[in-house]
Amino acid sequence: MAKSNKPLVWGLFAAGGTLTAFVTPVLVYVTLMAAYGDPPAALDYENIQAFAANWLGKLALFVVISLSLWFAAHRLRTALHGLGLRADTAIAVAGYGISAVGTVLAAYYLVQI
């Protein structure tokens, strides 16, 4: 029996699940306010720009975006199997592919700020 290479993505999944449990609810609440046309001060261009211009801010945004994607890709792979889809390889390639592209794009946009 060959050992699985799943640990590679499982590490990202577990880290992402934990991180998003801590941060995603409050972030969704903040952008929910923006969705009502009443964004809090932090979302003003000057403030958010200053946050993302700082390398710590960049790192935070990068990690949250990237790990959200890896977490979702890995968990949805299991969920879709549970829903009866059996094209596991295609689902894995698509999900992890989107996560990898999203990770690269996040880094690319953030260094430009």
Binding site: M1, A2, K3, S4, K6, P7, W10, T78, G82
Partner: peptide, 15 residues
């Protein structure tokens, strides 16, 4: 043991 338990059919099939 990990030859079996760390295979796909081992812990990695657990959701």
């Amino acid at each position: 043991r990990e030859e079996e338990t760390a295979s796909h059919e081992g812990v990695w099939d657990c959701a």
